[in-house]
Design a protein around this nucleic acid. Structure first.
Length: 369
RNA sequence: GGAGAGGUAGCGAAGUGGUCAAACGCGGCAGACUGUAAAUCUGUUCCUUCGGGUUCGGUGGUUCAAACCCACCUCUCUCCA
């Protein structure tokens, strides 16, 4: 089945709703952990369940290279392969156009990549991306887009947006799996008219949901918030809005206040492996000397497995000793922190108290309170 | 007792007359990380009132100039007795 989005309450622009999927109904706003290679790094599906995860991500580019989409199709798609047991989403490889490909390797037909595993030449097209994603079998799939670098000139961005729109239509034309919802991706950088154009043209194509791409690529916060706003205000209210790659706690709040429903981000798991934890008083670095003898938990209001069982002092020791348990414990905490944040956000939108909640959270997080 | 090798920053280890406060690695201390080429990367790591000051086992010496050359002392390791 295709997903269905239901808007249940609006508090200014913030939206409380849910998404009906084959695996159940999931409330939004939602944070989706990233499992590029078909696994949220270091975590088992049971651990993901425990932190309250709903949809999780995987990546077309990575799984195409290894193990290959046929291996996954053979296992019954990502669900059969990973046994996650919840809804899944695949990114199209569009972000790898940003992170791996050179500008001169972007053509109308598709994008030339150097295989990051063995250096061989690869060519990914919108059709190929959808074809792979059809085999991977995630519940939600993405159009193949170009995520342009920041800053890009207006001229470049205009061409890029038009090309990404053509790619979206090409992908939609070949998409042949009715059980998968296909999203279009709004681009346009920081240019309001390009964002508007991108969104409106995608809406004409009638996608199952809409993503906002091209943010958090080095632009400032205020610019990013504008990019979001320029995008969401041109999107239909009855479809889910997905802000791609954003997961800093404050950015989630700012996104929600601009009408975003779902988020994904590698930040909680990556900074975890690097020894950092989100707390309600801001991000902390467990490697810091000041935690050496600190027997308190990461965050005294957190209900995660890590905070129920372990101290900063012990986690610090694990991280410094390069014990993988340290990264795991912090990943559990950080993902739980963001998911808990979305739970609180939902509650406050329902109660029409979102603005106060947001301001209080940010003041505390930034140490102003 | 004899022969040899060697003692360089917290540790390991380069350096064998000036461009050396001394490469590099580890360890230490910080920082970054936003659709994951990331269990990664960056900075810093003798003291300093930023003018400078004191270092390369110790003490003397040679030289305009010494971690580097010479003498003696001292300690460590290996082999032989």
């Amino acid at each position: 089945m295709k997903i269905k989005y239901n808007l249940l309450n609006k508090d200014n622009e913030a939206r409380y709703g849910n998404i009906e999927t084959k695996y159940g109904v999931y409330e939004t706003p939602m944070f989706m952990p990233v499992g590029t290679n078909g696994a949220v790094k270091m975590l088992s599906k049971e651990e993901l369940k425990d932190v309250g995860s709903g949809i999780i991500l995987a990546n077309t580019y990575h799984l195409w290279l290894r193990p290959g989409e046929d291996v996954i199709e053979n296992a019954g798609g990502l669900h059969g392969f990973t046994k996650y047991g919840g809804p899944m989403l695949t990114d199209s490889g569009g972000f790898q156009v940003f992170s791996l490909a050179k500008k001169e390797d972007i053509f109308e037909e598709g994008v030339k990549f150097k295989n990051h595993l063995d250096g061989s030449d690869l060519f990914l097209t919108p059709e190929k991306s959808i074809e792979i994603q059809n085999k991977l079998g995630a519940d939600i799939i993405m159009s193949f887009d170009e995520c342009p670098e920041y800053p890009s000139t207006y001229e470049y961005m205009k061409d890029s947006v038009e090309r990404t729109l053509r790619w979206a239509q090409r992908g939609k034309n070949v998409h042949n799996n009715d059980s998968q919802s296909l999203f279009g991706i709004v681009q346009g950088g920081e240019y309001e008219d390009l964002r508007e154009h991108s969104a409106k043209e995608l809406v004409k194509m009638n996608f199952d949901g809409y993503s906002i791409g091209g943010t958090s690529v080095g632009e400032g916060k205020d610019t990013m918030y504008k990019m979001i706003e320029y995008s969401t205000k041109n999107l239909p209210i009855d479809k889910v809005r997905y802000l791609m790659g954003v997961g800093d706690p404050i950015d989630i709040l700012e996104g929600v206040s601009r009408g975003v429903d779902i988020f994904d981000c590698v930040l909680p798991t990556r900074i975890a492996r690097h020894g950092n934890a989100f707390t309600k008083y801001g991000k902390i670095n467990l490697k810091n000397l000041k935690y050496k003898y600190d027997l308190s938990t990461l965050d005294d209001t957190c209900d995660c497995y890590t905070c129920k069982n372990y101290s900063k002092s012990y986690i610090r020791h694990l991280i410094i000793s390069k014990e993988t348990l340290g990264g795991r414990l912090l990943s559990i905490h950080n993902i739980r922190f963001l998911i808990k944040l979305t739970e609180d956000i939902r509650l406050n939108i329902k109660n029409n108290t979102f603005e106060d909640f947001k301001n209080n959270f940010i003041n505390k997080y930034e140490g102003k309170d």
